[in-house]
Computed example of a mutant assay.
Amino acid sequence: MEQKRIKKRSHILQISYTILATLCVPLNLLYFTFFNSMLSENTMETMSEDTIESAIANLSVAYFILSAIYVSVLIILAILNITQSFQACHERETLFCINGMLILKYGMVIFFIVNFFSIALMLFGISLSGLLISHGTLIIATPVLLPFFFTVISVLGFITWLAMLPGSFFAVQVIRFSYSEKKIGMAAAFCHGLLQFFFLTDVLDTMYLSVKKWGMGKKSSIVIALIYTLGLALPIWTGIKISEILASAPLGY
């Protein structure tokens, strides 16, 4: 009976959540490309000032409505995924939980890498623009602006952390199965549970649980390990390049 339940239950929720989350940045880029094309110089030349203001207002309202729909669907999918993980655990669907964990944890790696670079580039762009516009005088206001930047980074980081929860809850079910099957002890189960709710460590812990404890996902783990390594190396390289650009930027006359 257990095998029949496993076959009937699909991974459509995990796949849908992963794809929709990963499309966040591309969808934003697509919309703002459309926004710019609608308000291109050639188009604006044939429009009155009132028409231009109305077009900007309508496009902005449309963006917030579409964003609200997107976020709402993503939240619903996240809740459904978490709920399904507990249902599958209750029905002892070990294989389903392991595969669900792998889909969500490995599938979301691209999302987190793209999300990180998008936030980094956004903050870098704002900082560099401010320095160039103010001819370097913005540095004087750094002590005042730092709390603002830390607040923005904290909020964005928390939102990104929330995105990892569906995969973490599937991993929790796998940890519960591992403990019940005596593959790990109570102390190890507690440590694995903590690791699943921290950036970077969650993917490494997923690799360990799936490959070492359950003998699953070996090939996908190798691919993700390569992407993961590249994802760790790129921020270091980016940080070095940003430092070089800021150091050489013209800060005054």
Rank of each mutant, 00 (worst) to 15 (best):
S180I: 04
T94G: 05
A88D: 12
F112H: 12
S134C: 06
N36R: 13
E45R: 09
I103F: 15
A163S: 10
S210D: 00
N36G: 13
E181T: 09
G252M: 09
L132I: 14
I65Q: 04
T142S: 15
K241V: 10
L146E: 05
Q173A: 12
N99W: 01
S48K: 06
L104A: 14
V109P: 01
N115F: 14
F34L: 11
I153K: 05
N58L: 11
I6Q: 09
T229L: 15
P166Y: 01
I15V: 15
F124V: 04
A233H: 11
I56F: 07
P166N: 07
L165H: 01
A141N: 09
S16L: 15
P250W: 08
V61L: 14
A171E: 02
I222T: 11
I245M: 15
L234Q: 02
I240A: 14
G130F: 00
S154Q: 10
L194Y: 03
V71N: 03
L121M: 09
S37D: 10
G107C: 05
C24W: 13
Y31L: 09
M164F: 00
L59N: 10
V152M: 12
S16Q: 10
G167P: 03
P235Y: 11
V73D: 07
G217K: 03
N115A: 08
L13E: 04
W237N: 09
F64E: 04
S243N: 14
S134L: 04
L30R: 03
I69T: 03
R9S: 08
G217E: 03
M38D: 04
Q3Y: 06
M216P: 01
R9K: 13
M1F: 01
I65E: 02
A233I: 15
T142C: 08
F64H: 07
F150E: 07
I236C: 00
F150S: 12
Y70G: 02
C191E: 02
V144R: 05
S129I: 04
I113D: 00
L156H: 02
V155N: 03
I82N: 01
L246E: 12
D202L: 06
K4N: 04
N42S: 15
V109C: 02
A233G: 11
